[in-house]
Each structure stands twice: as C-alpha cells, then as structure tokens.
Simulated assay, not measured.
Amino acid sequence: LNFATTLPKAYTQDDLRIGYMLALQLASAIRNADHVQKMNHAQAELRIYNNELQASNRELDAYNYTIAHDLKSPLTAIGLNADLVQRSMKENLPPKVGKYLDGIKASSHKMADMIDQLLWLARSRNSNDTLTLVEVKPRVEAAIQRFQHALEDHHISATIEGDIPMALGHGQWVEEVFANLISNAIKYMGKNAANPSITIRAISDDHFVRYEVTDTGIGIKEEDQKRLFEMFTRLNTVQADGIGLGLSIVARMVGGMGGMAGIDSIPDKGSTFWFMLQTPK
C-alpha cells in the first residue's frame, strides 16, 4: 500500500497509523479472497468427483442387478429339474441319488436367497419414488407368513403386540425390512432359549413411529453391535446361512425412506432390532 505526495511532512503519525490499519485490512481481504477461490475450486472438484462416483455406482448397481436377475432363471431350472427327477422316479430312485438331489435343491434355494438379497441391495440404492402412507400391519403379517414353516420347525412363536401405526415409506420395502429382521431373529435364536419367541410392536409420537422386532435369542455383544449394519458382516456365535447382507439392506432401505435403524441387545438375553419411519404430517 503506497501513499505519495510532493509536500514535505504531509502525513502525520495518525495518517501513518490509518494507512497501516488499511494495509492490514486489505491484506486480510486478499487472503480471504484467495481462500474463498480455493474453496470454490475444491467444491467444484468435489461435485465432479461425486457425480462421477454416483454414475459409477449406478452402473455397478445396474450390472449387479442384471447379473443377479439373469442367474435366477438357470438356478430355478436346476431346482425344478431336480424336483422333477425325484417326482418321476419316486420309489425307483436309489436313496443315495435322492440325497444328492435334496442337496441340489437345498443349494439352489440358498443361492436364490442370496441372489434376492443382491437384487434388493441394487434396488435400495436409488429410489426416486415419493414416500406414501403405508399400512404397516398387513406388511408385518405378510413378512411373518413368509417364515411360517421356519417358525414352526424351530418352535418359535411370532406375535404382533398392540397397535401398529401407519408411516411414510414404500410398502414393499417396509415388508422386506420386517422380513430381514424376522429372518435374522430366527437364525440367531440359538438352541438354548427356554421360550423362543419373536414380538413385534410399535411406539409412535408426533414425528416418528419406532417399530421393534424383539427376540429371546442369544443376544449380541456391544462391540459387535457397531458393525452389524455393515455389508457382509457375519457373527461367528452361531452357524447361520447367508452372506451378511440382510441388515445392511435394512439400513439402506430405512435410510432411503428417511428413517434410521438400530439395535438394543443383551448377550444371552435377546435383542431388539428397531427402525423409525416418519409419521404423516
């Protein structure tokens, strides 16, 4: 900052102090402008990277969806053909061959479940559909019905306790969330539960409805709870089928409906998996 004059002693000490203060303020303004310019440039680059990442994710999800969908047809054919062989040969089928065919059918069903999870994972990443008011209780009942045979085989009771209020969401997603939580409760019920049961209830306020799926299973240690909703997380406490996608699908779907999910659990006592959805305004 320069001041010039042809007059001798034209500037007083006050003038010099004012000039000094102006210089400091201008220097600060220049630095701030430089920081703002760099920040704007960084934000522009971040937006570009974010758009590229979203495009890559969409391409990856589309690829995963296509591959998983295309795998279902031959897999279904394998299971049906194995069943047809058993039905057509009946008494003439050697026991050893029948055992092999049972194994083929069981493996094809297991693989079909894994493919379904991959398909749901691809669907749950992007949904631009507007949230609608969902009748949740029928969705809970449908989810329980899916596992009726498994519940009976493991002697587990499944009950709906009290009123189940409506909430904003996607109907099929809500059902799939409950189905994953019920399936998880069955898998980790354990063998020593005195009264194996699953209870589904809801608590509502002016803004959210909290849906709970409580089991009397083995429970989960606190250090394991933090990573439960991550992809491919498996707990080694019991032997269970699956690839560890169920709870990550729950978290992604609930988040996609504007809610949140979590767990309260005590080892050897049981767990309560919960998720919250918005109530209608």
Results as ranks from 00 to 15, higher is better:
residue 14 D to S: 12
residue 14 D to T: 12
residue 16 L to P: 01
residue 18 I to A: 11
residue 19 G to Y: 04
residue 26 L to F: 11
residue 27 A to T: 14
residue 28 S to I: 05
residue 30 I to Y: 12
residue 31 R to H: 11
residue 32 N to F: 13
residue 32 N to W: 12
residue 33 A to S: 11
residue 37 Q to I: 07
residue 39 M to E: 09
residue 41 H to Q: 14
residue 45 E to Y: 08
residue 49 Y to H: 12
residue 49 Y to P: 01
residue 52 E to C: 08
residue 52 E to V: 09
residue 52 E to S: 13
residue 55 A to H: 13
residue 55 A to E: 13
residue 56 S to N: 12
residue 59 E to T: 07
residue 61 D to V: 06
residue 61 D to G: 07
residue 62 A to M: 10
residue 62 A to H: 08
residue 66 T to S: 14
residue 69 H to N: 13
residue 70 D to N: 15
residue 70 D to E: 15
residue 71 L to G: 13
residue 71 L to F: 14
residue 72 K to M: 04
residue 72 K to I: 10
residue 73 S to N: 07
residue 75 L to W: 03
residue 76 T to C: 06
residue 77 A to F: 04
residue 77 A to S: 07
residue 77 A to I: 11
residue 80 L to R: 09
residue 81 N to W: 04
residue 81 N to D: 06
residue 82 A to D: 01
residue 82 A to W: 01
residue 85 V to N: 04
residue 85 V to K: 06
residue 86 Q to W: 03
residue 86 Q to Y: 03
residue 87 R to M: 04
residue 88 S to E: 09
residue 89 M to V: 09
residue 90 K to T: 05
residue 93 L to K: 05
residue 93 L to T: 02
residue 93 L to G: 05
residue 94 P to G: 04
residue 97 V to Q: 07
residue 100 Y to A: 07
residue 100 Y to C: 07
residue 101 L to H: 03
residue 101 L to V: 02
residue 102 D to E: 09
residue 106 A to Y: 02
residue 107 S to K: 09
residue 108 S to R: 04
residue 109 H to I: 06
residue 110 K to N: 09
residue 110 K to P: 00
residue 111 M to P: 01
residue 112 A to F: 04
residue 114 M to R: 06
residue 116 D to Y: 05
residue 116 D to N: 12
residue 117 Q to I: 02
residue 120 W to A: 10
residue 120 W to P: 02
residue 120 W to R: 12
residue 120 W to S: 11
residue 126 N to M: 09
residue 127 S to F: 08
residue 130 T to N: 12
residue 132 T to Q: 13
residue 133 L to C: 08
residue 137 K to L: 02
residue 140 V to T: 01
residue 141 E to G: 00
